[in-house]
Amino acid sequence: MPTRYAFLILRTDDATAPDRRVMSRGQSTLAEGQTPAEFAGKLLRENRSTRSHYTGPRRCSVWPIDGDGPIPRIAPDAALHFDD
């Protein structure tokens, strides 16, 4: 059974105000055999390509979800974090 994950990509530089750090958020089903780390890496590469105006550091947080609820602006404690 496919696993759905929520994701949140944030700017992590100190110069950006905390309320302006969200670059992308959403949810997706992991591809068969894909790990959360591979999923986050793919999201970070896509984000770096589509938002090339920002060249600073980013963090992608991912966590499994049930349903289609809204994605929060802060990742839950149980989220896995991957920096780029």
Results as ranks from 00 to 15, higher is better:
Pro64Tyr: 06
Ser49Cys: 02
Leu43Pro: 05
Asp66Gly: 10
Glu32Asp: 10
Arg25Ile: 07
Leu10His: 14
Ile9Gly: 12
Leu80Ile: 11
Ala40Asn: 07
Arg48Ser: 04
Phe39Met: 06
Arg48Asp: 02
Arg4Val: 12
Phe82His: 15
Trp63Gln: 01
Asp14Ile: 04
Leu10Gln: 15
Phe7Thr: 13
Asn47Lys: 03
Leu30Pro: 04
Pro76Thr: 15
Trp63Asp: 02
Met1Tyr: 13
Pro18Gln: 02
Asp19Ser: 06
Asp84Val: 11
Gly56Val: 02
Ala6Val: 14
Pro72Asn: 10
Arg58Glu: 01
Ser52Gly: 06
Gly41Asn: 12
Ser28Trp: 09
Leu8Ser: 13
Ser24Cys: 06
Glu32Asn: 08
Pro36Gly: 10
Thr3Asn: 14
Leu10Gly: 09
Asp66Thr: 14
Asp84Trp: 14
Glu32Phe: 06
Glu32Thr: 14
Asp14Pro: 02
Arg11Val: 01
Pro2Gly: 13
Asp13Pro: 10
Pro36Ile: 08
Ile65Lys: 06
Thr29Cys: 06
Phe82Gly: 09
Phe39Leu: 04
Arg4Thr: 13
Arg4Leu: 13
Asp68Tyr: 10
Pro76Lys: 13
Gln34Asp: 07
Asp83Ile: 12
Tyr54Trp: 06
Pro36Phe: 15
Phe7Pro: 12
Thr50Lys: 10
Val62His: 01
Ala79Asp: 08
Arg59Trp: 00
Arg48Gln: 03
Thr3Trp: 14
Thr55Met: 03
Arg48Ala: 07
Tyr5Arg: 15
Glu32Met: 09
His53Met: 03
Val22Glu: 00
Gln34Val: 11
Arg4Tyr: 13
Thr50Gln: 06
Arg11Lys: 15
Pro36Cys: 06
Gly33Phe: 08
Leu8Cys: 13
Ala75Trp: 09
Ile65Thr: 09
Arg73Ile: 09
Arg48Asn: 01
Arg45Met: 00
Ile65Trp: 02
Ala79Ile: 10
Lys42Met: 11
Gly26Trp: 08
Ala79Met: 10
Gly56Asp: 02
Ala78Glu: 11
Ala78Val: 08
Val22Pro: 00
Pro2Glu: 14
Ala75Ile: 11
Ile65Phe: 04
Met1Asn: 11
Pro36Val: 12
Pro2Leu: 15
Val62Asn: 00
Lys42Tyr: 09
Ser61Trp: 04
Met1Trp: 13
Gly56Ser: 07
His53Thr: 00
Pro64Gly: 06
Ile65Glu: 00
Pro72Ala: 15
Cys60Asp: 03
Gly26Ile: 11
Thr29Gln: 12
Ser49Met: 02
Ala37Asn: 07
Asn47Leu: 03
Ser61Cys: 04
Ala17His: 00
Ser52Asn: 08
Gly67Thr: 06
Thr35Glu: 09
Ala75Phe: 10
His81Ile: 12
Thr12Asp: 15
Gly41Asp: 07
Thr12Tyr: 08
Cys60Asn: 02
Thr16Cys: 04
Arg73Asn: 14
Arg4Ala: 14
Gly56Leu: 02
Ser49Val: 05
Asn47Met: 01
Pro76Trp: 12
Ser61Tyr: 08
Thr16Glu: 00
Tyr54Leu: 00
Asp84Ala: 15
Asp68Arg: 05
His53Tyr: 09
Asp83His: 15
Asp19Tyr: 00
Ser52Val: 05
